[in-house]
Each structure stands twice: as C-alpha cells, then as structure tokens.
Nucleic acid binder design. Structure first.
Lengths: 211, 211
DNA sequence: ACGTTTGTGTGATTCCCGTTTAGTGTTGGC
DNA sequence: GCCAACACTAAACGGGAATCACACAAACGT
C-alpha cells in the first residue's frame, strides 16, 4: 500500500555506459577511507558519498561491505606475495631468505595496519570465514613461499627442535604477535621497533637453527 | 507532543529491594553469552532477555556495553595476574619462572578466547582505549610480574641480545602471536598446540638467554 | 519509428544495534 | 497520608548493513 511517488529525476547522475569504471572508483574511495578510518569507520554510506553515488549503488558492484574491503586487501597482500616470491628466487642461503621474508612481512604490516588487522586479526565476529576465501588463499600462498626455505633448513638437519612445519608456524606467529601488539596498542612503552624486530629474529633464528 | 499512554503495569516485574543483586545477575548472564557468542554476539538486548529485564535496565548498573564485558574480562585477567604473582614467588630460577608464566598466559588465552580477543586483540575500532582503563591496568600488572624475572636475567648478564625490556616484550609478543593466530584461525593446519608452544619457548629462551 | 530489454541507478524501507528520554509503579521515611 | 528515591519500562533516536520496488536512459530488434 505504498503510494509510489515518482519524482522526476534531478539529472544529478553519473554518466551512462561506464559501469566498469564505477567499480574502480568505489575501490579507490573505499581504500582511502579504510586506510584513514579502519574497518568500522569505512561505512557503506561514507564510501558511497565519497564516490558521489547512493549507498544502494555499491551493492550492484559488490556483494556486501566485506567484499569491498577484502578486495582492497587482496591487492595489498598480492604485493606481499610478490615480494616473497622475489626473495624466494634470490641466490642466497635459506636462513637469509627466511629473515628477509619475515622482515618484509612485518614492514608490510606496519605500512598497512588496517589491512593487516582485517586479514590477520579478524575475529569471526567481524568477518565470516567464507567471505575470506580469496584473501585467505593469497595468505596461504605467502605462507607457502615462506615455508619453502624452512623446509630446506629442516631437510638439511639444521633444526634444533620441532618439525619444519612447526618451526615455520612459530616464526610466523612470533612476527605476527609483534606487529599485532604494536598495531593494536601503539601507546604502550615499546622498545624501538627495529630493536624488537631484531631481537625477535635473532632470538628465534639462533634458537631454532644450528649453524 | 507524545500522548503519554499509561498502561497499568502487568506486574511481571522482578522483586523489590534487590538492586544490588541485579548487577551480579547481569554479569553472570552476560558472561555466558559472551563466552558462547563473542563480543558482537553479546548484544545488550540478548543479555537483558536472559536476565529477564528490559534492555534499558542494564544502563542503571553499567555505563555501557563495553563496561559490562570489560568487567567480566577484569575478573578473568585478575586470575591470570594471581597465577603470575604466585609463580613470581616460587623459589626457582628466573628462566623457569619466565617459562611458567608464558605457559600460563597461553593456556589462559586458550581457555578464555573471547576475553583474550577483547583485551589483547581489540582494535580501536571495536572498543575505545579510555574504556579499557581498569582492564589495561590489570594487563600492565601482569606484564610487570612477567618482566621481573627477565630483568633478573638481564642484570646477571645472561641476555644474548637486546635489553631486558625488549626481551620481555619480544617474549610476550611471540606468545601473543601464537595464541592469537590459533584463536582467530582455528581451521588452519596447525601443528599440535603443545608442540607449537614448546618450539616457541624453547626457541626463544635458547636464543635469547645464555646458560 | 517504436516497443522492449538491459544496465545503472535511486529513495524508502527493513531489521538490527547501542543508547536516551520520559514516564510508571512501588517502597521507605517522615 | 505524602513524597522522594528507587528500580524499572516502553518508545524512540540515530546510525549501521542490506533489500525492495521502482525510474530512466541508452541500445537493440524489427
């Protein structure tokens, strides 16, 4: 029983045949807001306003809010993967590759704190697991690149304790913990970032790997 | 211009002079829901329903939702602090105390994943820093208890690298990273929990501390 | 030239959420 | 008996994500 008032359109509309452009515009606007204000701050309405479009319009190009932000994150993580692949191909010893990858990982986190939190600190509360599909796969590939040199080390019998797999997971987790704490509690009395990274890497690599 | 309809009360109300009891009832109900459904799942209305009271009523006993959940967390973290204090007083060497505390910390996280996430993984997005005041202080005291033995080790010149403070932060961060990943990504192909804990602690302690 | 389909959008609405406002019934002290 | 304090409530607010029914221009088929 709605009365369906039809106002004549005010012609304040975007051009016609450029639907594919819109997608990019949305991603660009969303990325800015997301970087500046984080997951909760990047609301559908704000993004839509920034693009100059109604909030409804976003749903023509993306299934839901999470898809927008995850697509942005995919981009960022793709870069991280590229770095890892590059490092993996360098003609240096495995321990150096491991160290370089972990350093790159941590720098990535510091450079993209919101993306990092969305992907690596996202509780099931805020973003459901199925939606992560694509992003999670990129993360997996990063981890695989990283596991490579560690399995080399394990195969060479240079692991002081545990399997190659658990060593890889532990190294990842330690670096994750460091950046996660620094990102989520920036006001604490932290030792200098570089020193914390160094102590973490020196400590763990020295503790896990024999020369 | 509201018309102020006054219906006679249906007498489906809670008993009279027990306002102070209500607070505890709310906390109990909230804790159940919070444990079962996490931060976002524990809505004001659900908690109120469980207590058998209107959602408005909660605001008579708590300033806002976060205060309820943080009060629950305070409780849990108080227990962790007690454990740390206990360990700190045992007549064993400093490295053993460090290890026991970190193990207790990780077990606490696994036993109280939602509390752990709320307090240690909470981005500014979901809960503002000022509100954390009391809880953060408990966390600080935990960390201080933990720092104690590490500074002993540092003072004895047994630290291979970095200051006592950075060693403490790194050890904490590594354990945090491990539990955070295991909690937020439970479906991954993790090595057994106990092995990961052991590798983390063995690796870092061996790498940072000389015998 | 004209109806129809398709792409691209919109305003209003739905359903939650946390939180606020204004008012209600009971009780204890005088 | 009156009245303030208490413990509580229904209704509403403003803002979130998401959906609905519709609107209008261009492109296409004949």
């Amino acid at each position: 029983m709605t009365i369906a008032l039809k106002k004549p359109h005010k012609s304040a509309r975007k051009p016609k045949g450029d639907g594919h452009l819109r997608r990019g515009e949305i991603l660009a606007a969303a990325e800015k807001i997301f970087i500046a204000e984080g997951y909760a701050g990047a609301t559908i309405r704000k993004i839509a306003d920034a693009v100059g479009v109604s909030s409804t319009a976003l749903y023509m190009h993306f299934r839901d809010k999470d898809q927008i932000l995850l697509e942005i994150s995919d981009d960022a993580i793709g870069q991280l993967l590229a770095v890892n692949v590059d490092i993996a191909h360098r003609p240096i010893d495995a321990v150096s590759r491991v160290r370089l990858m972990l350093e790159a990982y941590m720098r990535f986190a510091f450079d993209n704190p919101n993306t990092y939190q969305l992907v690596f600190c996202g509780s099931r509360d805020v973003i459901s697991k199925e939606k992560q599909a694509a992003t999670a796969e990129l993360g997996d590939r990063c981890f695989e690149e990283f596991s490579g040199p560690i399995h080399e080390i394990a195969a060479a019998g240079r692991l002081r304790t545990g399997s190659g797999e658990s060593a890889a997971q532990v190294l990842w987790a330690a670096c994750h913990g460091l950046v996660a704490l620094l990102i989520t509690m920036p006001d604490r009395n932290w030792a200098p970032r570089e020193e914390l990274m160094k102590v973490t890497l020196d400590g763990l690599l020295h503790g896990l790997v024999t020369d």
